[in-house]
Amino acid sequence: MIFSLHIQAHSHPAMLEKILQTTRVRGFTIRSLEVKNDAVEQLLKVHLTVESERPQERLVTQLNKLGGILELTALHAVADPIPAVARTARNVSLMYPV
């Protein structure tokens, strides 16, 4: 699944690193990245396109709780959002393949 995120965050030192590190650790590969640092508003504006077999909620909820994140919008999703395991397991709905 490929989807995009638009993030506005405080322009703290290491804010961008934290976003990218969280993205990597949670199992998402970055397809493209656009960053603007608004010096007047002290805002970091990040447009991120990522790919993973894991559902986008897995990343969105983790990014959303980072200190300094002001706004986060998942813009669109491409491809099947249902992981393969969830389709085959009975009684158990897994959020990502094991």
Partner: peptide
């Protein structure tokens, strides 16, 4: 089992078990 999940951290709910 069906699951009721109580947690302060929304990121934990549905992370591994829906």
């Amino acid at each position: 089992a069906r699951v009721i999940h109580l947690d302060i951290d929304p990121a934990e709910i549905g992370k591994l078990r829906q």
